[in-house]
Computed example of a mutant assay.
Amino acid sequence: MMVEKRGLGRGLSALLGEVEETPVDAGAAGGLRDIPIELIHRNEKQPRWVFPEVEIEELAASIREKGVLQPILVRPAPEMDGHFEIVAGERRWRASQKAGLHVLPALVRELGDAQVLEIGVIENVQRSALNAIEEASAYQQLVEVHGRSAAEVADAVGKSRSHVANLVRLLALPDPVRQYLMAGQITAGHARALLGADDPLALADLVIAKGLSVRDTESLVRKAAGGGVVTPRPASPRPRKDTDTQALEVDLSEALGLTVEVIDRGGIGELRVKYASLEQLDEVCRRLTRA
């Protein structure tokens, strides 16, 4: 049964603490068991999107040598009888597959969608595993979809309200600029400075091309706002898309988790999927082959 909305921190900390402190013993009570790895699936809405391959390889090597030292946290998979959805521990699940494991120790809990997101956010934020856009998107989802206040979210993750608010503001940047941030081409400091620009994408391109610091970026934004000359990015005008094409782009982007562009020329055209890292490309391939 889903827990009613309340202060997040204490209840979730207790649950996460239980997971971290539970020894790997498939015979223990409380829902801990060994589950065939093919019955475990990632949560498509979990806050972390990018898993660096080198990080997974290092963990897989450790698992081959020492095994899985802590169980993952799962819940019964919605609409998939006998299967389970990861709540916390996707990195261990990915590494265990690379290590050739056939079963994975897991703590099974009945959890609602809001609780699953909250646990995912807290686990990843506490371990500094999320990039700024992933973290901002998770905060926004907690507020807009699950009805949490900004104060509740800040308290749950142990951050200030200003930290949460400043990150969420980054989602107002154009998608290419957000992709630059996710790929590490600019920092969150650069991104915050670009929020005040009339054309943040043009300035972001200039920041990357010249390797500007955050302070230089702030000066560049002020200069542009004051009518100073800033070298624009090359223009690439495209014909206006109809409503159906735009809706299709949105649907495909949500399905793949990346920006999808449909370029149609009278029934012949291109389908472009934009990714910012090899990990994102790997995730798209995984989704397509699974489908």
Rank of each mutant, 00 (worst) to 15 (best):
M182H: 00
I268D: 15
G89F: 10
R286V: 10
G17A: 07
S128R: 15
V273N: 04
A106H: 08
D81C: 06
S96N: 05
I37E: 09
S137K: 14
S137M: 02
G31Y: 05
E218I: 10
A61W: 00
R215F: 07
R33H: 02
L32Y: 06
A191D: 01
D175F: 11
G82R: 00
F51D: 02
E110G: 01
E65F: 01
V3P: 04
T187D: 04
P23F: 08
V214A: 07
K159D: 13
P47T: 04
A172S: 15
P239R: 06
I35R: 03
K241V: 02
A132R: 00
A291K: 13
G17T: 06
L16I: 03
Y139T: 01
L201E: 15
P176F: 10
R33P: 08
R290W: 12
L15G: 02
E283Y: 11
V230G: 03
V221W: 03
H41Y: 14
Q115H: 08
R169F: 11
Q126N: 15
L203R: 00
A88N: 15
L206I: 02
E110Q: 14
L256C: 08
A99R: 02
E261R: 15
T243E: 14
V24P: 08
A255S: 12
V177D: 03
G112M: 10
L130C: 04
K274S: 13
L107I: 04
V121R: 00
V260W: 13
N166E: 15
A197F: 15
R48F: 01
I86K: 13
L171P: 12
V157M: 07
T259E: 13
L16Q: 09
P78F: 09
V260E: 12
C285M: 13
M182K: 12
E79H: 15
E249V: 09
G227W: 06
A136G: 10
G158H: 03
V168G: 01
L181A: 07
A95K: 14
A77S: 14
A99L: 07
R94H: 13
S253A: 12
G82T: 10
V68T: 09
D264Q: 08
L59M: 14
P78L: 09
E249T: 08
T217D: 09
G257W: 11
R10S: 06
D282C: 00
V214L: 05
A204F: 04
W93E: 14
S160V: 00
I122M: 14
M2R: 01
L181T: 04
L248T: 07
I37G: 10
A291Q: 15
F84C: 12
L171Y: 11
P105C: 09
N131I: 01
Q70H: 14
G120Y: 12
V229G: 00
R10Y: 05
M2D: 15
V221S: 06
D264V: 06
G269H: 09
S13I: 00
E144C: 03
P47D: 10
P239E: 13
P234M: 04
V125S: 10
A235P: 06
G31E: 05
S219Q: 14
